[in-house]
Amino acid sequence: MTDSDVSTLASADEALFRPVRTGNAFEETVERLLQAIRLGVAGPGERLPAERDLATRLNISRVTLREAIRALQEAGYVESRRGRYGGTFVNETLPAAKPAGRQVAPNELDDVLTMRRVLEVGAAEAAASRPLTDSDRTYLRDQLTEARTEDLSEYRRKDSRLHLAIAEVAASPTLTSAVADVRVRLNQLLDAIPLLPTNIDHSHTQHAAIVEYILTGDAVGARDAMAEHLEGTASLLRGFLS
């Protein structure tokens, strides 16, 4: 490796292991670690920085870091070794990043995420900006309850149903149709990444906050909470599929 290569890796190391944002700390940590692995900052067979050092550099708790490492271990990206020379090591063979049996086309992921952000952030804001009927309120609460399913095989479907319900109570059939279209594309990508229990628990909390903002008519709160929620999903998709 040349001095130039070492300098480049050092710069990449600093860029990837910078402090994460607190709103989606788990999801962004998973994304950062995956980026480091895919970019070769931590190559096959190499050890990740020590847990204490990595947690400090990312400005996260060691609990959050361990959850992210455990998720990547279960997904086949890293392994933990004990002993004097132990630590977290990148696996020699990494899982292929292929959603639904095909490679992600250039710009496809960014296109889906941009459309989703524009549509669903707007839908949450619009839903919170209009007077809701008792039926609307009951419908939202019911979908929120359904989305908290413990059956992982049903999670994607019920998560999608809640997001569509938010668009529906915004009372714009055109918006609901557009959200449904982008959700179909999104789910094709989501089906290619693992379901991470920590992310699902975090999503449940964010869903509850979004619905509460809508029910109380707080359009700014609904908009900001939805934007933060979508960014967590975007972090995972970029990490696993980019």
Rank of each mutant, 00 (worst) to 15 (best):
N59P: 03
P106K: 12
Q143M: 13
L72G: 10
A147E: 04
R137C: 09
Q73D: 15
L152H: 05
S172P: 03
I193R: 05
L144Y: 05
E168Y: 01
A71T: 11
S129L: 07
Q143V: 02
L140G: 04
R161C: 01
R81M: 08
A171R: 11
Y85H: 12
Y139R: 08
L195E: 08
S129Y: 09
L119E: 06
A96G: 07
R185P: 00
A178R: 15
V112I: 14
A165L: 05
L190N: 10
T176Q: 14
T88G: 01
L186M: 14
V63G: 03
V179L: 10
Q103Y: 14
T149R: 02
R102Q: 09
A75P: 04
A192P: 09
L195V: 15
A75G: 08
V104R: 06
R82I: 01
K98M: 14
T176E: 15
Y77L: 04
A170G: 06
R70M: 06
A128T: 12
R141K: 12
L94A: 07
T149Q: 04
L144P: 10
G122R: 03
D111T: 15
A75L: 06
Y77K: 02
R137N: 01
D191R: 11
R102M: 07
E146R: 13
V184P: 00
V169H: 03
V90M: 07
R116T: 06
S160Y: 02
D159K: 03
M115D: 14
P131C: 05
L132F: 01
T149K: 03
G83K: 04
G122M: 02
V118T: 12
V182D: 03
L72H: 08
N107E: 14
R81Y: 06
R82F: 09
G101R: 08
L132S: 03
N187H: 14
R62Y: 04
T114P: 02
N187M: 13
R102G: 02
A68S: 15
S153P: 00
P99C: 12
T149D: 07
L94Y: 04
V118A: 09
V118L: 15
L140D: 00
R82L: 10
R156A: 11
H163N: 14
L190V: 01
T138F: 08
T138K: 09
A75S: 15
S80K: 13
N187L: 14
T88H: 13
R116C: 04
V112S: 00
E125Y: 00
I69Q: 15
G86S: 09
L119K: 05
Y139E: 07
D191F: 05
L119C: 06
I166T: 01
L72N: 10
L164Y: 05
P99E: 10
L196C: 04
R102A: 12
S135K: 05
A126V: 00
R70H: 11
R148S: 09
E74Q: 13
M115A: 14
G76C: 10
R81A: 15
R116F: 02
R148Q: 13
I60F: 12
R81T: 07
A167M: 08
L109K: 08
D159W: 06
E74R: 14
T88Q: 00
D142S: 12
H163Y: 02
T133W: 03
S135Q: 13
A127E: 00
Q73R: 15
A124R: 02
G101L: 11
L65K: 08
A171C: 05
Q143L: 15
L164D: 02
